[in-house]
Amino acid sequence: MNRQFSDYTTEIEKANLSLLADKATDSTTYSHALYELGRELGRVLAEQVNDKKKSVCVACSVEDADYLTTGVIESLTSASLEVSLACFWNQRQRQHGLSMAPIVRKYREPNVDHAKILIMVKSVISGTYVVKTNLTHLIQTLQPDNIFVVAPVIHKEAPHKLSQEFPQSITNKFHYVYFATDTEKQANGDLIPGVGSHVYQRLGFKDQADKNKFTPKLVKSRSALLKTGVTR
C-alpha cells in the first residue's frame, strides 16, 4: 500500500482511515468514522486560523455534509469561529473525454459572501473537477484571504493539478489539510486504498441520482435556524 500520513495524523486517525478503506465496514460505522475524521480536521483548522474574528465559509458536496462536514463545523464553532455553510449537489459526468461535475442544486447561507476564510471539505480528492467546480462558483463572489482544501485522503498529485486550474492570485491562498496521501488509482479513478470506493454508495445511497435527491440533516437544521433569525 503506497500511502503516506501527514504530520497531523495520529493512531486514532489511522484507525478511522482503515475503517473507510475496508469494504466490509457497514454504513453506520463508516459514517461515524467520517464524522470523527471531520472533527479532527476541524481541530487542526481551528489551530491554523490566527484571527478568530474572521468569518469562515465551510463548503462541501451533499454526500459529505452530514458526517465529515458536520464534524468539521462542530470543531470550528467550539473554537468560537463564526461559520457559514455552502453545500453543492454535483452531477458527475464525462463529455468528450473530460470529467465534469456541474452544480445541479446549491445551498448558500447569507454570510457566505462575507467570509474571509474559505474551507473546501471533501471526503477524498482523487481528481480535482468537483473541487474545481465548487471553488470556481464560490470565488465569483467571495474574496477570501485564505483557502483551505481539506480531506481525510488525497491523491499525491491533487495539489499540483488543482493549482493548474486557477490563476496564481488564487493558488497563493491555498493551504492543504489532510491525513493521508495515496499514490495508486484504480481504472475508474478511485484511490487505492482511498476511502473504499465512492463515498455516497458507502453511505447507503443507491446511485448518483439517489444522492442528488437527498437533503442533508445539516442543511435542514441550519436552514431552520436561519428562518428563526438564529445564526451559529
Rank of each mutant, 00 (worst) to 15 (best):
E47V: 02
T136Q: 13
V62E: 06
T29G: 00
T133P: 02
A46S: 15
E82V: 07
R105L: 08
I119P: 06
A180I: 03
K211R: 15
K217C: 01
A65S: 14
R202C: 06
N212F: 03
T133N: 05
D7S: 13
K156T: 13
R232I: 13
A79P: 05
S197L: 08
T183G: 00
A21C: 09
L135E: 04
K227L: 13
S78E: 13
L226F: 05
T69C: 09
E13W: 03
L98H: 10
K53P: 00
V124R: 04
Q48M: 14
E157W: 01
V121H: 02
V131D: 01
G194H: 08
S84A: 14
I125H: 05
G97H: 08
T181N: 06
T183C: 01
A158G: 07
L68H: 04
T10A: 06
S61I: 14
I119Q: 05
L142V: 07
V230G: 00
K227F: 00
R105I: 01
N90E: 05
N172A: 14
S197A: 14
A158M: 09
T69I: 10
S84D: 12
I154A: 02
P152N: 08
K185V: 13
S31L: 03
T141K: 14
A101M: 05
E82K: 12
S27K: 15
Y107V: 10
K53L: 11
R105F: 01
L218S: 07
S223I: 00
N212P: 07
A224N: 13
G97W: 07
H198T: 11
T25W: 05
L17R: 08
D207C: 07
V44I: 15
H160G: 00
S221N: 11
P216R: 07
S31G: 11
K132H: 12
G38S: 05
K206D: 12
H32W: 03
T133Q: 14
Y35D: 06
T25R: 05
V56K: 06
A33V: 09
S75K: 03
K227D: 10
N146V: 15
Q93V: 10
N90R: 10
P159L: 09
T69L: 07
P167L: 04
H96R: 13
T10F: 02
A224C: 01
L203K: 12
Y178T: 13
V49R: 01
K116N: 14
